Amino acid sequence: MRRLGDLEAEIMDRLWRWGRPATVREVVDDINRARPVAYTTVMTVADILYRKGWLRREKSGRAWMYEPERSREDYTAGLMRDALVSAEDRPAALLRFVEHMSDEDMRALDAALRTVDRQGGRDGARDDQGAS
């Protein structure tokens, strides 16, 4: 998974945070509170995000209403998977990652692992690692 560009991330962040469909105009107006950005630039990037499968859209009058196709958590998990896949020594990379986790994050990871164990699997995660 490729990391989102700066403007792509700004657009997605707003849509994730708002939790509702929004027009390009709404996104532009919100970004313009912090820095200037052209309507056509945001419209182009929203269309790119749509074509990449990050956004879905529906026509509302003359405007498109955009909303995320995937969650912020899906995006973050994809980045984490890619980082792990690129490591030559996965156990060492995982160890370094865990060593820098806060106690709160450690508890969240422990709870996530227990949830996965209760559900009886990891949807192919073992196949990715070559385990049986």
Rank of each mutant, 00 (worst) to 15 (best):
R118K: 09
R107N: 08
V28D: 00
A92Y: 13
P91I: 12
L109F: 06
R62M: 07
V28G: 03
A112H: 05
P68F: 12
A125G: 10
A93K: 10
A125N: 01
V24Q: 06
A77Y: 15
R57Y: 10
R17C: 01
M101C: 10
N32Q: 15
I31M: 03
A9E: 12
R57L: 11
V45Q: 05
R35I: 07
M65K: 13
A108R: 08
D128G: 00
G53P: 09
M12H: 00
M65R: 15
R3V: 09
V24R: 06
A77F: 14
E26F: 12
V27D: 01
D110G: 03
G120K: 09
A83H: 13
R96K: 13
L95E: 11
R33K: 15
V28Y: 08
E8V: 02
R70Y: 08
R96W: 12
V27W: 08
A93W: 09
A34I: 11
D6N: 07
A87H: 05
M101Q: 08
D89L: 04
Y50K: 08
R62T: 11
L15R: 03
G120W: 08
S102C: 04
A92I: 04
R56D: 03
R14A: 01
D82R: 13
Q129P: 00
E58W: 10
S71H: 05
G130V: 07
R72S: 12
T23D: 01
Y50W: 13
A93I: 03
M12I: 04
D89I: 08
R114M: 04
G5D: 02
V27P: 09
T40K: 15
R122G: 05
L94I: 13
R25K: 15
E99Q: 10
P68K: 06
E104H: 13
A77D: 02
G120N: 05
A22H: 08
A112E: 06
